[in-house]
Design a protein around this nucleic acid. Structure first.
Lengths: 154, 154
DNA sequence: GGCTGTCGCAACATTAATGGTTACGACAGA
DNA sequence: TCTGTCGTAACCATTAATGTTGCGACAGCC
């Protein structure tokens, strides 16, 4: 598979949510063209990555009940649910692991008033932010995503 | 410096915002007790980390105009502004680098309709989410944080 | 029954961010 | 001059994400 190098400054964050949305939109679009299943090879070609990466990601989505896979001849992936019913929140929860912001690696000094109170204080703030993030993500369906994708001018 | 291992499942995300808030709250609280400056050694002891890590982080905050440092004898760190006027958004922008969610590492296949439209589509969604995140962060001041910290029961 | 294409998964390499550690010069007050 | 602390470079360790290869499992088809 050819690598199409593009000079990006310094990609740090994880692109798992982006690639997962790409894969779901691709499968949904492909099925609307009349095809039964999509292969990891086809999706990887569109996303410019390795088929195994796609299979790993789709494996997470299958565990979440969003897609199904068939083995044997004529194998491939298909949606387990309609694009309209899948939200970015479900995709996010299927592919993202930890919290947005982490606490200290080692517990702060509990003998210090600041060290003692900082984790509960920040946790309360972070919980509120993650709740807002989830509300935002739950307001976007994969149908919305595919519509936006197809609306981009060539 | 002793390492106080605490069994966390799998800390992945970055704790830079947490540590920065800890440091600012510590300096602010210390100054209210009548002290002029705080040393990276003291802050590191409270946060249970290395003084150099604190100096690096406070260096970012100084570049953002949130703290000042003094050198020579009686050296240390002090707030450049009141805790009430510093928001978590300013701290976030001072210490966090990239976007919350990243795009593909290599550009997707532009010859595919999905590959062509996926990045603009997701970017629009991500921009909205980051805007919401920033609004949330801008609504919390370091004064709020310190108050929450001191309100935690012993 | 064998052939074929694809998934499932393990194993390993690569890259990048983060954090921990040591070292040492610069600085400024006592 | 002495001392304590900052400023910063250099290096190592750890972790997550990603890329890659290999191969067995599976199921339809000939």
């Amino acid at each position: 598979m050819e690598r199409c190098d593009q000079e990006e400054e310094s990609v740090s964050a994880n692109s798992r949510l982006t690639i997962a949305a790409h894969a779901l939109a691709w499968i949904g679009h492909y099925q609307r063209l009349g095809h039964e299943v999509a292969t990891s090879e086809q999706i990887a070609s569109s996303a410019n990555t390795n088929p195994v990466v796609i299979r790993r990601l789709l494996g997470d989505l299958r565990r979440a009940g969003l897609v199904e896979s068939r083995r044997g001849a004529g194998a491939g992936w298909s949606l387990a649910r309609e694009l309209e019913s899948i939200t970015l929140l479900e995709v996010y929860e299927a592919v993202e692991t930890g919290p947005l912001f982490a606490m200290h690696r080692a517990a702060p000094d509990q003998g210090c008033v600041v060290g003692h109170g900082i984790q509960p204080a920040m946790q309360g703030i972070y919980d509120g932010i993650e709740g807002t993030l989830r509300r935002e993500l739950s307001g976007v369906t994969l149908e919305n995503v595919l519509r936006d994708v197809l609306a981009v001018p060539r």
